[in-house]
Design a protein around this nucleic acid. Sequence first.
DNA 1: CAATACCTTAGAATGATTCTAAACTGAGAA
DNA 2: TTCTCAGTTTAGAATCATTCTAAGGTATTG
Lengths: 129, 129
Amino acid sequence: MASRLRKAGLRPTRQRLALSSLLFGQGDRHVTAEALHCEAQAAGIELSLATVYNTLHQFTGAGMLRQVTVGGDKAYFDTNTGDHHHFYVDAEQRLIDIPGEKVEVLGLPTPPAGSEVERVDVIVRIKSR
Amino acid sequence: MASRLRKAGLRPTRQRLALSSLLFGQGDRHVTAEALHCEAQAAGIELSLATVYNTLHQFTGAGMLRQVTVGGDKAYFDTNTGDHHHFYVDAEQRLIDIPGEKVEVLGLPTPPAGSEVERVDVIVRIKSR
DNA sequence: CAATACCTTAGAATGATTCTAAACTGAGAA
DNA sequence: TTCTCAGTTTAGAATCATTCTAAGGTATTG
């Protein structure tokens, strides 16, 4: 775990190690800063909300997380950085992964001259019937 | 213009008429509340920012606008409510429409039991090369 | 162990958006 | 026309996620 941080140029501090294990110790997760902070506190880890924000951004910069934007008021961080998309359950403000291999987006125009595609996000907004 | 508002169950007030003409008087537009407010002021229309927010939401509720979420800190409102997608130019925080007819999203899994698809948003994030 | 560059943090600051409560106004009734 | 009232507007306060500041810790290297 520490080596993973070192490889990213980040010192393996107590706080970063703790957040790493919360984030990457289980399967794929979608967390908000606030939620992760609560979870850490509940696990007996003392750290400030600012540190959670810092860490999430540093991990994102290092490619260990991806930020997902769905439009609620909060930002989500996804531990799955591979090619995939999302269902978004509006009523519960919850994200569900959609594996990327199966999905294909056809017919996109070429981007404006001088620019290139960085990423294609597909968000399927769903509501209960 | 007034009839359009009446049809939506909204009184055609001075403020709503003015914002309507700014929004729908030209081609398709992507605006933020702040930007629309500035534009109105520049056009000599006195109204409060709160009214701009109220109006944008009412128009959205009436299906005259669609809210687009790209993840900056502001919300965008799109006068094009038809089937289409977006390029998002991160560096300029600017949206560009992608006509919907050409684009096809294949292979999406069926949504979780009891829920149904409300909308599929495709956002192509582009950066300058 | 000492030096130092990197980290963490409490609390303040920011900025978009929403809320509140009071004043205003369109539209139908009288 | 005037009255009435539900629907509107609004200034300013309040909220809330997020970022900033500056002061105090802590890995790491020599």
